[in-house]
Design a binder for these strands. Structure first.
Lengths: 233, 233
DNA sequence: CGGCGTTATTGCGCCAGCGCAAATTTCCAA
DNA sequence: TTGGAAATTTGCGCTGGCGCAATAACGCCG
């Protein structure tokens, strides 16, 4: 069963490849479907494959030795993930979980060296991808170093809305199930504090939320909140 | 003035290159010396060059719009830095400052696309480098999310000692000038808290410190401190 | 050798946000 | 429809560590 070229032609990873080259690469992939909450791979496991997300949403998270979890990022369709081999790791540094029913393409990690040798643009675009994740991670470090919780949560919501926001009548809704706990693990706080923060915003009409569901009603006000200096309340 | 191949032959960036290839690459580099506290490049500036550090130590830091600084990392000899172009940026995302008299090799960023096309192993090794920095950054996010200040500072010191530790009679000394403020900016705290923490350790004989100087007398105890669960005091 | 700027130390008060715990709501499966 | 698990909300008390401010030590340079 061949995979349709049009599904992936516009992905950054495959930029600069001729249609035949793309077909050749795709012919080596298998596609797989993961149900909501299914694990795609686990932290520490042998990195047998790398992936491109076609449909759905995937959470990448790390667990500390004491069992605490931290969400590294959410993967949106079109992104690569699990590229451990490319960055010199033989095991996955994080756990990938489908947060929604998801469809992926998968290649054996063992094919990576040959693929990059054959198609140098793969190395270039992967470098750009990893580089931008490094920037994001630095941004997160800076936020955690210099901002208090409310602003961090605001930033996190706006980022999620930008990556996976679905426009609806009353605003922008985050297009996959996400809990208070998840947001806490993204922002370095506790689900209690996130709950309190969101409750406050809901009362002020900035958001509307429910079980694993968040709708941004007033992204602009939220943005002001995220950017405002500590003094100006 | 040709640059001696032996200086750089063992660097990961140049792994897998033949001696002639190495010479060809080096022939395009210029070397430069920066005095202590000199800026090598500034955040936001056009990314004209990328660098390899030959000697000395360089601090990479980011400044927030409100003027707060965060230390991204310390560069040790043999490492590349300023590879903005390779990760798709046209300006430097951080400021690089020599913390000691330092010597670098520099290539024009404009040469990067040609160099990687010519020597694909450059892309591969840069990908590994950027990937490992991503891991480090994630580690830092996790530490800031889950550990309290004392453990974070302990981790930071141990990491610095590993990268730039100089064995002396009484222990391991960090081999470049570093202030309490610097450590605060690495760990997401304030210089006051760092000072108090280090004072405490000094009284317990774990370290010895002075102006911009830190000596680890008992790295093992420090390690226990860094790894111990919050409960076990 | 003395003055000055930088860096480090330390005391004190305060508060953002954590930890605990209990109640409540929502969803799902049987 | 009902039972139960998971997610969320909220109150309360406490504390780690920040902010401020004053002092002290260090090193450089004239």
């Amino acid at each position: 069963m061949a995979i349709d070229r049009s599904l992936v032609a516009k992905m950054p990873l495959f930029a600069g490849l001729a249609p035949e080259q793309l077909d050749a690469i795709l012919s080596e992939a298998r596609s797989a479907r993961y149900a909501k909450n299914a694990a795609i791979f686990e932290q520490g496991e042998e990195a047998h494959s790398f992936f491109v997300l076609l449909h759905g949403h995937v959470r990448a998270s790390k667990t500390t030795p004491t069992g605490q979890q931290v969400v590294v990022r959410y993967v949106t369709p079109g992104e690569v993930f699990g590229v451990a081999m490319a960055i010199g790791l033989s095991t996955y540094p994080a756990t990938a979980t489908a947060v929604d029913d998801s469809v992926v393409l998968a290649w054996p990690s063992a094919s990576w060296p040959r693929l990059v040798a054959q198609y140098p643009s793969l190395a270039r675009s992967t470098l750009v991808t990893v580089g931008s994740r490094l920037q994001e991670s630095h941004t997160r470090v800076i936020e955690m170093s210099t901002q208090q919780v409310e602003r961090r949560v605001a930033h996190a919501l706006l980022r999620l809305a930008g990556q996976a926001g679905r426009k609806v009548e009353q605003g922008v809704e985050i297009d996959f199930p996400i809990s208070r706990q998840d947001i806490a693990e993204m922002t370095g706080t506790t689900l209690h504090t996130v709950s309190r923060t969101l409750s406050g915003w809901e009362q002020r009409g900035l958001i509307e939320s429910g079980r694993q569901r968040i709708l941004l009603c007033d992204p602009h006000k939220l943005f002001q909140l995220a950017e405002q200096a500590p003094g100006e309340a």
